[in-house]
Amino acid sequence: MSSTAQVTKRLQSDLMGLMMDSIPGISAFPDGDNMLRWKGTISPSDSSVYAGMQFTLDMQFPAGYPLTAPTVKFETPIFHPNIDMSGNICLDILKDKWSPTYTVSTLLLSIQGLLDTPNNDSPLNNQAAQLWNNREQFLKLAKRRYKRLPLS
């Protein structure tokens, strides 16, 4: 079996897992014909700073998946300590802590978790990290920054 076929098979099962569990707040689906590229959606919990918003993610799976971590980026602009202006995410499990046992579901859940509990020690967005503890001002700035944030 070729490696792409293996990757595809694994992603198929990821997809099925995602469909069967249907975890509220996260969802993802392959983008058209290319099985190696997915679109994901994260809706933060109601208690979150980002409550009421919806974030679109772009996921690219390498030919070595699941041995190699996928590349995940935010497509929707977000003001967050660990996410930079172009949507790059600083998350350990996407880098050195990646494990082949992770699936798309666990990945999305981790990112959803990251939204509420950022790692302020290694920020990508310094300003956001500084403001994090001042929720009111954080929101004010966030909203000014991204006037077109998709508020549903």
């Binding site: 249907s22 689906f29 997915w38 679109k39």
Partner: peptide, 11 residues
């Protein structure tokens, strides 16, 4: 339905 909804939500 799950598939359709996921598809439409993400794409």
């Amino acid at each position: 339905e799950t598939y359709v909804m996921a598809m439409l939500q993400n794409l």
